[in-house]
Design a protein around this nucleic acid. Structure first.
Lengths: 198, 198
DNA sequence: TGTTACAAACAGACCGGTCGGTATTATCTT
DNA sequence: AAGATAATACCGACCGGTCTGTTTGTAACA
């Protein structure tokens, strides 16, 4: 049972997660990661086949981390609208606002850079965001079935709008480091959700 | 009046605007720009002192283009809320959705990449966005003075939220190329603005 | 328990190629 | 002829990735 190797591998992923979140995919060099981990090229390429391979592993880990934060205590909330509001709050305050990743949102930062430069990598992120939007839309549908919403709403449009706003806030917070952005967005989205109610 | 030179300079700026909007600052190479313009290094560096110098010139031109599109027919609108809604629509449909820049929004794409990598360049973009938000806030204040809004609203927070959402939509549209994103965001923001009214 | 054998883990030099930028030289325009 | 404009060749630094060789941990055997 040699776990020394997998320990090293994990530490490389953890460090690269931070570096990718700050510098993006292309601007983060293998040397940056070597410097942060104390490894050398030979050691590194024993664990990962390529830079893209490392990024993919980092992405998967980022998803894990993100889910743990954003969906914390969510399943216990019966009211689907409140569940949605709490998810937004978790995302902006506990994920973005708490410095989980140095560069802000790993996903969005990388998505913007990779759009139009690498369809495989950006497509992976995009699919994740779409899944998230679909989940939010299913909660809205649940609220609709329970008669909690005004009739005739575009539920998918609302879910997309939430995802759009949350990610926009994440990006502008990363750039400005102004916590007002996060607080304001949480409040405005809460008020926006309120006026959807029947 | 030597205008051959300034013509070349302008064409370099125009081409680089597109390239920067797609690839961002670091991933766009001088060679990319030379290839697109047919120039060589010697010619290029006769017009621009550095890559950063070119980017700055491109940024200024992008601001010009953006203003021309987003504020078209805006001054004629008396109702400040309608003015705000129309500005959002112009931005998302005529600026983002009409392929003015190949990569979507020049400003936001570059902002995300440059955040935490170049304070001078990202700071310039950020200041532009803050100016925009302040302008929108002044329109909201105007509406407030005219008694059009519910009392006790956080006007700056609302303006920031609009900027956040518009830019989030721009980024997600660039990545997905799904025009629904733009249409939905325009509609949701319109409905959001409506419920602010007295 | 000490020795041998083997594989996992890592080090560091090196590859072709690209990066932003410079210096020099040639070619236009006036 | 003179000055603006552009072409060419080149620089050192860095890019992702490969290569060979050394160290280290571990298990089998005596």
């Amino acid at each position: 049972m040699s776990n020394k190797g997998s320990l090293t591998r994990q530490s490389v992923i953890d460090k690269s997660l931070q570096i990718f979140s700050v510098k993006g995919y292309y601007n983060a060099s293998i040397n940056d990661i070597l410097e942060a981990t104390g490894l050398t090229k030979g050691g590194f390429y024993g664990h990962f086949a390529s830079k893209e391979d490392l990024w993919t592993a980092a992405y998967d880990k980022a998803v894990e981390i993100w889910k743990g934060i954003v969906f914390k205590g969510i399943r216990e909330i019966d009211d689907p609208i409140e569940r949605l509001a709490k998810t937004i709050e978790n995302d902006l305050q506990d994920y973005i606002g708490s410095g989980v990743f140095d560069g802000g949102c790993f996903f969005f930062n990388n998505l913007v850079e990779l759009s139009g430069q690498s369809a495989p990598l950006s497509g992976r992120i995009l699919r994740g965001l779409e899944d998230f939007s679909r989940l939010l839309a299913s909660w809205l549908a649940e609220a609709d079935r329970k008669g909690m919403l005004r009739p005739g709403l575009d539920l998918k449009g609302i879910a997309d709008f939430v995802v759009v706003s949350v990610n926009g806030a994440a990006a502008l917070y990363s750039a400005s480091r102004d916590p007002r952005i996060l607080r304001e967005t949480v409040m405005q989205l809460r008020s926006y959700l309120d006026h959807l109610k029947a």
